[in-house]
Amino acid sequence: MMAWVFGSLLFWAAAWALNVRLSRLSAPWVRFFVPALFGMTVIIVWEGMVRGFGVNPVLLPAPSAIAATFVGEIPTLWGDLVQTFFKGALSGYVIGCTAGVLTAIAVDRSPFLQRGLLPVGNFVAALPIVGMAPILVMWFGFGWQSKAAVVVVMVFFPMLVNAVEGLRASETMQRDLMHTYAATPGQGLRKLRLPAAMPFIFNGLKICTTLALIGAIVAEFFGSPIKGMGFRISTEVGRLALDMVWAEIVVAAIVGSAFYGAVALAERVITFWHPSQRG
């Protein structure tokens, strides 16, 4: 049994030594290989420790057990994913972010309202809005609609703040230039301020991807039909089936990164001109 412990520790030492060496190189493949090897080390040490010390799977299941559950439960995991992500998180994300940007455009002509909205929005964005979940579940029922509502409330203010700041981001000189062309306010918005706001809007969109998933999952802790990632996590924790919980977390990690990655990719395509995207 101790062979597992020593074996994994040995692997760790070897992999770390290799990484220290490799990190001095500047080949492009090193940038991917080093973190990948590190991630593998963590999993191997985890597996080795769990097996070597015979850790109770109720406390910490081995990665191999999690992988087995993951593969075996794909239909359930997929159903939960559809319920929580595609129905709850994604629809709330789209509605909330659209509403945030539209509100920012609506108050665009009023510097007075902007001055008021920015601090209020920043304040609300720092509050524990997830706490609204029980109220919204009470209003919109146990279905995915209440999860979407939680997501809408969570993403609205961060999105609003970023969009308002973005619309103010264009340089004075460029606004003067628009003025010398006698451009209408609508033209100024379309041709100058909206494109200039895009990096800020995407910043908001990226922050909101994580918030959307958190909101949809946590809202399910307050009541949901018998599917959904949050529902599964809370019931399986109750049954001490931690391998299933971990499998859901793996799904959440994959979906979370993929969602973020998709938004980041769109950002790359749309704001290709921004210095942060050129380098």
Partner: peptide, 20 residues
């Protein structure tokens, strides 16, 4: 070595709904 092995994971983990 720390930078190259750990930092990408830290950044990636920010996109994961940790609260779950």
């Amino acid at each position: 070595a720390m930078d190259m092995s750990v930092m990408p994971w830290i950044i990636a983990s920010q996109t994961v709904p940790i609260l779950a």
